[in-house]
Design a protein around this nucleic acid. Structure first.
Length: 310
DNA sequence: GCCAGCCTGTTG
DNA sequence: CAACAGGCTGGC
């Protein structure tokens, strides 16, 4: 479902409440979506930060109590763990002690229909909620995914690059790594590919999906099925500049909600109001009024203006 | 490269 | 009913 702008919007919406996120319990309704979970207990972890890489979310988790040597059940300190956890978190000098400090990275990929929703703990989770994280403040975070393509993976911090999808991502299109030279050079390597399959290739650029590939190509006036080798350097330089422009605009509109997508608070985005071609088959091109066409490129529906795009 | 497969829901 | 849906993987 979500592409870079939607994942970034979700990240920002969740981050607003980051200080309140002390996990007290995790409820698993559908274990298939959770990988590596058996290696860890998720009780009494705190979400320190949420990062994004391409379409992945990376949750930095920190635990302050030793899971291997839990205090006995009659221990008062254990029974008041919530207070203790907070007290220790306020004192950063504890965080370097390995006996009480452990770090994990939780990798979440939402694929097509995944959502992360902040809910009240007492409210029953919506249909298709597969994992619920309960927090000490009475809130919960639900991982909901109709099609169940999304995945959650847990790693000791630093080991998350064992995930091949994450490890092989290309540069972030909104970072300095995504240079003109890199883009031109990569195009040179893929001269015989169609331009749209390059944009969708996460090893080349991290985070672009079907919507923003179509919209970028429309603005660059390049047909999605055009062979890269047939595109002029001038056009490619233009496209390189347009990609971050479109992604920034989409983030500014809090993502595209034409179907399921909502942020962590269930709010829709607005970029669907700005779309020129995506999902607009038969509707007039915003520039020349020619009906938008739909073809298959790289196995995906691709929308373009047959007059404006060459 | 392409294409089935993973899933459920919606649309034509 | 079949076709299709913001994605990715693995097998040819």
């Amino acid at each position: 479902m979500p592409e870079l702008p939607e994942v970034e919007t979700i990240r920002r919406s969740l981050l607003k409440n980051i200080d309140k996120f002390f996990i007290s319990e995790i409820i698993i309704y559908h274990p298939d979506v959770l990988l590596n979970i058996e290696n860890f207990s998720l009780k009494n972890w705190k979400i320190q930060n949420i990062r994004r890489r391409g379409k992945y979310l990376l949750f930095d988790l920190q635990k302050y109590f030793d899971v291997l040597n839990p205090p006995s059940e009659n221990n008062k300190a254990f029974n008041s763990i919530s207070k203790e956890t907070k007290a220790i978190n306020q004192n950063s000098s504890f965080s370097n002690d390995p006996s009480i400090s452990q770090k994990m990275t939780m990798l979440i990929h939402l694929r097509m229909t995944g959502k992360l929703l902040i809910e009240e703990k007492d409210v029953l989770p919506a249909k298709h909620t597969h994992v619920r994280f309960l927090f000490e403040n009475g809130k919960s975070l639900d991982f909901n995914d109709v099609r169940r393509f999304g995945r959650i993976k847990l790693f000791k911090s630093g080991e998350e690059f064992q995930d091949q999808g994450l490890a092989n991502l290309g540069p972030e299109p909104l970072s300095d790594e995504f240079t003109k030279d890199y883009f031109l050079q990569t195009c040179q390597h893929h001269r015989k590919s169609q331009i749209k399959s390059l944009l969708l290739n996460q090893k080349v650029i991290a985070g672009i999906g079907n919507i923003y590939a179509d919209e970028s190509l429309f603005r660059a006036k390049i047909r999605p099925d055009r062979l890269i080798g047939d595109i002029s350097q001038k056009e490619l330089i233009n496209l390189h500049q347009i990609i971050p422009d479109i992604l920034e605009e989409a983030i500014g509109h809090r993502g595209t909600s034409f179907r399921d997508y909502v942020d962590g608070f269930g709010n829709k985005g607005f970029f669907q109001l700005q779309l020129a071609v995506y999902h607009k088959t038969g509707q007039p091109c915003p520039i020349c009024k020619t009906p938008i066409q739909k073809i298959k490129v790289a196995g995906r529906s691709s929308h373009f203006c047959p007059h404006c795009q060459k």
